[in-house]
């Protein structure tokens, strides 16, 4: 009796359940679709702009290091604007942060450590934000 009841229930469930049957080709198709979607996409074409900005930052830091004796905030701002027109940036010099323009989300930074004319160790950091605010 018990067995009969179980068999009846199994039959009932089997009748109500709706299953999916995929052919081998359909499985291949789905696998292909999955692999197609999983393919990595490049985020934009690669370029060397960041490297170029970094090299220019180093040029500017080198110039400031060589002429650090006559370096003041006004000259820093003026030369930054000449070097990176339309760009925002931040310069750390003698414990002070000089901001130019609006800060952006992405930036390229460089730092210089040097000894000035009085053989005092100095550090200078320069950040250029990638976004153009011109």
């Amino acid at each position: 009796m018990k067995l009969g009841k179980k068999f009846w229930l199994a039959k009932k469930i089997a009748a109500n359940e709706q299953g999916y049957y995929l052919s081998l080709e359909a499985i291949f198709s789905l696998a292909l679709l999955g692999s197609l979607l999983a393919m990595p996409l490049h985020d934009g074409s690669p370029d060397l702009n960041d490297l170029h900005v970094f090299k220019k930052e180093n040029d500017l830091l080198l110039h400031w290091a060589k002429t650090s004796g006559s370096l003041d905030e006004e000259r820093i701002v003026q030369e930054f604007k000449f070097a990176f027109p339309g760009k925002s940036g931040e310069i750390s010099w003698k414990g002070k942060k000089i901001s130019i323009g609006k800060p952006g989300k992405e930036s390229i930074g460089s730092k210089a450590v040097f000894f000035d004319a009085q053989t005092e160790k100095r550090e200078m950091a320069l950040i250029v934000f990638k976004q153009d605010f011109s």
Partner: peptide, 27 residues
């Protein structure tokens, strides 16, 4: 019918993949 749909989908996938690869190569 199921077979026809599956083959069509397979062909479409293959087409999309070759198009995608060509596009990537060009880029």
């Amino acid at each position: 019918m199921d077979l026809a749909v599956a083959v069509l989908a397979l062909l479409m996938m293959a087409f999309l993949m070759t198009q995608h690869l060509n596009f990537e190569k060009e880029r």
